[in-house]
Protein backbone atom coordinates (compact mmCIF):
# COMPACT_ATOMS: atom_id res chain seq x y z
CA UNK A 1 0.00 0.00 0.00
CA UNK A 2 1.13 3.52 -0.76
CA UNK A 3 2.61 5.17 2.34
CA UNK A 4 0.64 8.39 1.99
CA UNK A 5 -2.56 6.44 1.67
CA UNK A 6 -1.63 4.29 4.66
CA UNK A 7 -0.92 7.38 6.77
CA UNK A 8 -4.16 9.03 5.71
CA UNK A 9 -6.13 5.93 6.62
CA UNK A 10 -4.32 5.65 9.94
CA UNK A 11 -5.00 9.29 10.79
CA UNK A 12 -8.68 8.83 10.01
CA UNK A 13 -8.77 5.68 12.13
CA UNK A 14 -7.08 7.46 15.06
CA UNK A 15 -9.46 10.42 14.82
CA UNK A 16 -12.38 8.04 15.06
CA UNK A 17 -10.74 6.21 17.96
CA UNK A 18 -10.12 9.28 20.16
CA UNK A 19 -12.51 9.01 23.10
CA UNK A 20 -15.38 11.45 22.99
CA UNK A 21 -15.11 13.17 26.35
CA UNK A 22 -18.01 14.84 28.03
CA UNK A 23 -17.45 18.36 26.79
CA UNK A 24 -20.60 19.90 28.12
CA UNK A 25 -19.42 20.43 31.73
CA UNK A 26 -16.24 22.23 30.63
CA UNK A 27 -18.35 24.67 28.62
CA UNK A 28 -20.39 25.44 31.74
CA UNK A 29 -17.24 25.83 33.87
CA UNK A 30 -15.70 28.19 31.30
CA UNK A 31 -18.93 30.20 31.15
CA UNK A 32 -19.29 30.50 34.92
CA UNK A 33 -15.63 31.24 35.73
CA UNK A 34 -15.33 33.71 32.84
CA UNK A 35 -18.55 35.41 33.88
CA UNK A 36 -17.43 35.60 37.51
CA UNK A 37 -14.07 37.16 36.60
CA UNK A 38 -15.93 39.82 34.59
CA UNK A 39 -18.29 40.43 37.52
CA UNK A 40 -15.32 40.89 39.85
CA UNK A 41 -13.98 43.41 37.34
CA UNK A 42 -17.31 45.24 37.29
CA UNK A 43 -17.35 45.21 41.10
CA UNK A 44 -13.91 46.80 41.25
CA UNK A 45 -15.05 49.45 38.76
CA UNK A 46 -18.17 50.26 40.73
CA UNK A 47 -16.15 50.44 43.94
CA UNK A 48 -13.61 52.79 42.35
CA UNK A 49 -16.32 55.09 41.03
CA UNK A 50 -17.99 55.05 44.44
CA UNK A 51 -14.77 56.11 46.19
CA UNK A 52 -13.75 58.60 43.51
CA UNK A 53 -17.02 60.07 42.21
CA UNK A 54 -15.18 62.22 39.65
CA UNK A 55 -13.51 59.26 37.98
CA UNK A 56 -14.55 58.64 34.38
CA UNK A 57 -15.67 55.21 33.18
CA UNK A 58 -12.54 55.00 31.00
CA UNK A 59 -10.16 55.63 33.91
CA UNK A 60 -12.11 53.28 36.14
CA UNK A 61 -11.86 50.57 33.45
CA UNK A 62 -8.11 51.13 33.13
CA UNK A 63 -7.61 50.94 36.90
CA UNK A 64 -9.82 47.88 37.15
CA UNK A 65 -7.76 46.11 34.47
CA UNK A 66 -4.53 46.93 36.30
CA UNK A 67 -5.96 45.56 39.55
CA UNK A 68 -7.11 42.25 38.07
CA UNK A 69 -3.86 41.92 36.12
CA UNK A 70 -2.07 42.25 39.46
CA UNK A 71 -4.29 39.69 41.16
CA UNK A 72 -3.84 37.19 38.30
CA UNK A 73 -0.09 37.72 38.37
CA UNK A 74 -0.02 37.11 42.13
CA UNK A 75 -2.18 33.99 41.84
CA UNK A 76 0.16 32.74 39.09
CA UNK A 77 3.18 33.24 41.33
CA UNK A 78 1.42 31.41 44.15
CA UNK A 79 0.67 28.51 41.80
CA UNK A 80 -3.09 28.90 42.11
CA UNK A 81 -3.98 30.27 38.67
CA UNK A 82 -2.95 27.12 36.79
CA UNK A 83 -5.27 25.09 38.99
CA UNK A 84 -8.15 27.41 38.13
CA UNK A 85 -7.11 26.96 34.50
CA UNK A 86 -7.29 23.16 34.66
CA UNK A 87 -10.86 23.51 35.86
CA UNK A 88 -12.07 26.49 33.84
CA UNK A 89 -10.16 26.26 30.54
CA UNK A 90 -11.02 29.25 28.39
CA UNK A 91 -12.89 30.73 31.35
CA UNK A 92 -9.55 31.78 32.79
CA UNK A 93 -7.62 32.12 29.49
CA UNK A 94 -9.86 34.57 27.63
CA UNK A 95 -10.18 37.28 30.32
CA UNK A 96 -7.27 39.72 30.56
CA UNK A 97 -6.21 37.75 33.67
CA UNK A 98 -5.22 34.94 31.28
CA UNK A 99 -3.01 37.41 29.41
CA UNK A 100 -1.38 38.34 32.71
CA UNK A 101 -0.95 34.63 33.54
CA UNK A 102 0.66 33.99 30.17
CA UNK A 103 3.28 36.68 30.88
CA UNK A 104 3.93 35.85 34.52
CA UNK A 105 4.15 32.06 34.08
CA UNK A 106 7.19 31.99 31.74
CA UNK A 107 8.81 34.73 33.80
CA UNK A 108 8.52 32.62 36.95
CA UNK A 109 9.43 29.43 35.12
CA UNK A 110 12.55 30.67 33.34
CA UNK A 111 13.93 32.73 36.22
CA UNK A 112 16.27 29.79 36.78
CA UNK A 113 18.11 30.61 33.55
CA UNK A 114 18.96 34.06 34.90
CA UNK A 115 17.26 37.45 35.07
CA UNK A 116 18.19 38.76 31.60
CA UNK A 117 18.19 35.68 29.36
CA UNK A 118 15.71 33.72 31.42
CA UNK A 119 13.09 35.85 33.11
CA UNK A 120 13.16 38.89 30.80
CA UNK A 121 13.86 37.17 27.47
CA UNK A 122 11.27 34.42 27.95
CA UNK A 123 8.55 36.66 29.41
CA UNK A 124 6.74 36.99 26.08
CA UNK A 125 7.08 33.44 24.78
CA UNK A 126 3.33 32.90 25.13
CA UNK A 127 1.96 36.47 25.08
CA UNK A 128 4.33 37.91 22.47
CA UNK A 129 2.20 36.82 19.50
CA UNK A 130 -0.81 38.49 21.11
CA UNK A 131 0.88 41.89 21.23
CA UNK A 132 2.47 41.50 17.79
CA UNK A 133 -0.81 40.56 16.12
CA UNK A 134 -2.84 43.08 18.11
CA UNK A 135 -0.53 45.93 17.17
CA UNK A 136 -0.40 44.82 13.55
CA UNK A 137 -4.19 44.74 13.28
CA UNK A 138 -4.52 48.09 15.03
CA UNK A 139 -2.09 49.63 12.53
CA UNK A 140 -4.06 48.23 9.61
CA UNK A 141 -7.27 49.62 11.09
CA UNK A 142 -5.55 52.97 11.73
CA UNK A 143 -4.42 53.07 8.09
CA UNK A 144 -7.93 52.31 6.87
CA UNK A 145 -9.35 55.13 8.98
CA UNK A 146 -6.57 57.45 7.73
CA UNK A 147 -7.75 57.06 4.15
CA UNK A 148 -11.49 57.00 4.87
Amino acid sequence: MDIEERNKKYNEYVQAKIPKTKNFPTLIYAFVVGGLICCIGQGIMDLLMLIFPTMSVESATAWMLIVIIFVASLLTGLGIYDRIGVFAGAGSIVPITGFSNSITSPAVEFKREGIIFGLCAKMFTVAGPVIVNGVAVSIVIGLIYLFL
Binding site: I84, I93, N101, E109, F110
Partner: peptide, 17 residues
Protein backbone atom coordinates in the same frame (compact mmCIF):
# COMPACT_ATOMS: atom_id res chain seq x y z
CA UNK B 1 7.10 20.00 30.62
CA UNK B 2 9.20 23.15 30.36
CA UNK B 3 11.27 21.75 27.49
CA UNK B 4 8.49 20.22 25.41
CA UNK B 5 5.33 22.11 26.36
CA UNK B 6 4.40 25.18 28.34
CA UNK B 7 5.52 26.87 31.55
CA UNK B 8 4.20 25.03 34.60
CA UNK B 9 2.17 27.96 35.88
CA UNK B 10 0.34 28.59 32.61
CA UNK B 11 -3.35 28.00 33.21
CA UNK B 12 -4.25 25.80 30.26
CA UNK B 13 -6.14 22.54 29.99
CA UNK B 14 -4.47 19.35 28.86
CA UNK B 15 -6.20 17.73 25.88
CA UNK B 16 -8.00 14.44 26.55
CA UNK B 17 -5.46 12.46 24.48
Amino acid sequence: ERQYRFPLELGNQRPPT
